[in-house]
Design a protein around this nucleic acid. Structure first.
Lengths: 168, 168
DNA sequence: GGAAGATTGTTGTTGACGACAACAATTGTT
DNA sequence: AACAATTGTTGTCGTCAACAACAATCTTCC
């Protein structure tokens, strides 16, 4: 083992870790993953956690989470959609979209307009402040995307998008 | 101005609308995602949902979920680990691992052995039936992995694993 | 025209999951 | 011995996916 093992834990203590030589304690980076390596799902899960955390942190100043951002961009690009249409397009349950829209409507970013044609459904629109806010969100999201590039590389990010294009 | 009906979704859009007066609903595939396309996080999220659903379905007959599988494989490959070590290695909170191990121990797949060296910690081991069960889980997980290959292609799966290798 | 069935939005529940906080028991430090 | 840190545990909170049930409304079919 190399003497300069990079510590991945965030313990602030400069002291040596607990543990004795008798019962051999594993260091974090010498624990094998065995079958987990080679499973795409595991890598994707870890990556998704990282990417969501960076997104949430980067857009933390405006208080927008990934799902909220996706709802806003779809409404912004397709004004007048019904809740069902948005839910289907984004793969969100319509029950869940209700709460998401409640929050966004409370923040005056989105408005539900009762449809004349189908009085069951609501036509979704961005408010005027919602439009300007979304523009700012997009700038921050682009900044987040640059973080992704720094993390995995510009070319790899492009490969990733191409590989997963079928899921959007 | 709108030509025919007084709809609420008047806007500049590349999307084509049906000319009839009836309330034409959007088809799912003609709703634009706008800025969402080009965001790695969105594609990764959708892919992760798909891959987890397939994993859960493929391992449904044995009732093993992705997180449980990851815990079992790590313990199987590194017997005697403490709960902290497993939690750190997999990026799981130790509070959450408690419940996971409770469930796995109740199913007689894992056992907690009180460590002599450090009486605070437990050494984690697979039981004998746990070993044979894990072997079956691995076969099913390999089947799931073949589904991934069918979905995105064998070469793309390899590219994906290489791109995201740093997150495992 | 009217009954039957489907759709839309809503409310509610369940369970998995990540993030924290607090605690007792134990260990290490000073 | 006094103090700080670690380990496992319990608990709470919020996000999210998956269902189920419901009223209001549309569509279909007879």
């Amino acid at each position: 083992m190399t003497a300069s093992t990079a510590r991945t834990d965030t313990r602030p203590s400069p002291r040596k870790r607990a543990g004795n030589g008798a019962a051999r304690q594993h260091d974090t980076d010498e624990i094998g993953l065995d079958a987990l390596v080679g499973h795409a799902g595991y890598a994707v899960r870890r990556f998704q956690i990282w990417i969501f955390q960076d997104f949430i942190r980067t857009l933390g100043e405006v208080g927008i989470r990934p799902t909220q951002y996706s709802v806003l961009t779809v409404i912004g690009a397709n004004p007048g959609l019904s809740q069902m249409a948005v839910a289907n397009r984004l793969g969100i349950e319509r029950a869940r979209l209700v709460h998401l829209l409640d929050s966004l409507e409370q923040r005056k970013l989105v408005k539900r307009i009762k449809s004349k044609a189908d009085r069951r459904s609501h036509a979704l629109h961005l408010t005027a402040p919602g439009e300007t806010a979304l523009a700012k969100f997009k700038r921050l999201a682009a900044e987040h995307e640059r973080h992704v590039e720094e993390k995995i590389g510009k070319a790899n990010r492009q490969r990733l998008l191409r590989i997963l294009a079928g899921f959007t």
